[in-house]
Design a binder for these strands. Sequence first.
RNA 1: CGGGGCGUAGCGCAGUUGGUAGCGCGCCUGGUUUGGGACCAGGAGGUCGGGAGUUCGACUCUCCCCGCCCCGACCA
Length: 508
Amino acid sequence: MPDHAISPTRDQDYPEWYQQVVRAADLADQSPVRGCMVIKPNGYAIWERMQSILDRMFKATGHQNAYFPLFIPLSYLEKEAKHVEGFAKECAVVTHHRLELGADGKLVPTGKLEEPLVVRPTSETIIGAMYAKWIQSWRDLPVLINQWANVVRWEMRPRVFLRTTEFLWQEGHTAHATREEAVEETLRMLDVYATFAERDLAMPVIKGPKPSGERFPGAVDTYSIEAMMQDGKALQAGTSHFLGQNFAQAQEIKFSSASGQEEYCWTTSWGVSTRLIGAVIMTHSDDDGLVLPPRIAPLQIVLLPIHRTPEERETVLACCRTLEAKLTAEHFGDEPLRVRIDSRDMRGGDKAWQHIKQGVPLRVEIGPRDLAAGTVSVSRRDKPPKERVSVPLDAIVEQASQLLEELQRGLFEKALAFREAHTVRLGSTEEVVAFFGGTAEPAPKGKGGSARSGFAHVHVADDPAVAAILDPLKVTVRCIPMEGDDEPGTCIVTGLFVNRRSVLARSY
RNA sequence: CGGGGCGUAGCGCAGUUGGUAGCGCGCCUGGUUUGGGACCAGGAGGUCGGGAGUUCGACUCUCCCCGCCCCGACCA
């Protein structure tokens, strides 16, 4: 066996490594439909963790869940000009509602629809239409609704979890009486995402507004959280949009104000998707497979009984059950520990490696020698695979949540250190070109670009001239960071005054 | 949609003067084993991505199609 479980390694071929991690951890499978994925139980369990944490956060900030239809009348999409422009190229359209058996024995669509239906690429239009019905008075505001749903965007280049034709997400849609309130909501949800990313996913993110070219179609302002993957590329991990009155005007979302005036609502929308699973994989995983932060790990501690004889099996398993009960009674992050005994009849080494590849944070081995000594043998996913520490049986119960906390924090700090090690401040176009490896740098044949350049903080104006310089480098302005010390300066391309530096990077 | 690479067992791969398939891992059975990817013996598993053509005969040659990966184009 090689000295690592995943081949190729990250250094050898990053995109291929990513796919092998997904396979080794049994997270997803290909579907017969191009660009779609089957999310397998191991992958879906991660999504369920994300859902449950985020859902609580949404409720805690006053939102309620609802569900809007998958199908959107074509005419709805036409209402907001920029919105159409942005999504028209990637819409699946339903034109028929029936199949008939043709002469050749094949099914053919018939029953043409009077108005084609678009499979939602996002739901602003249909939700807006409903809000227009529901909102009459300032007393009806704000409307704070979220929905968990699937959406379809006919992407040209799918990658499992990162960009698939159909994906799962949540989309929040809110309507407010004032601009200030809507902006506040936009930023509040951006904060929710940032907190979730950093606290639960252990993934450091940069919050900030997008330049105009990267805005959501129809938005006044788009804010994102941007994370750095281990190949130095940026991944947009969540977005929050201030939609101004654009959609309200297009869809007649109006209310009578306290002073009796008819006014347009101010709306927002915000979302994160199953892309976050890809983000977690690419932030933490190593050459032995998936590494999951304890807070989102569906299984936090796996108990591995070791025995030879039936008698040993009984006593060891009994001890495991007791330990499982004690551990399950403990809490980590306000939730009971997620513990399981893996008593499958297979070789211990294979079993252990399976859990390594699946990213289980803690492995606890219990064998006859442990029983005799009153200890267990503990391995951490953030340490080398063969490292084990002997711990007294009682101590593990007390220490479990603390260990998980250490792991969680360690992963965050490691990711943060990586980001910082690959972040620079640059002051000229020459430096930018040099940092990103020069123009038109071709990737190695058949390999992904393993050029691990990273983030460059640079003063740039929101101007086409900047894009003209960055374009050939395949670099984009990810966002303008809202936090951290920074000073005003002049744009390295246009010489225009700008308040802060922007983050430049290659991105997914 | 363009350029490149690739589709052979669950996974990773071999298989050129064309003669209808093999290796490693995995899987199943039995045994010996067992504190970190065991060993021995036996076994199951493939319409060689799909279709058409050339041929006595195609995994192999020709054409078309489909899918996957990388790079572009495109992308909240």
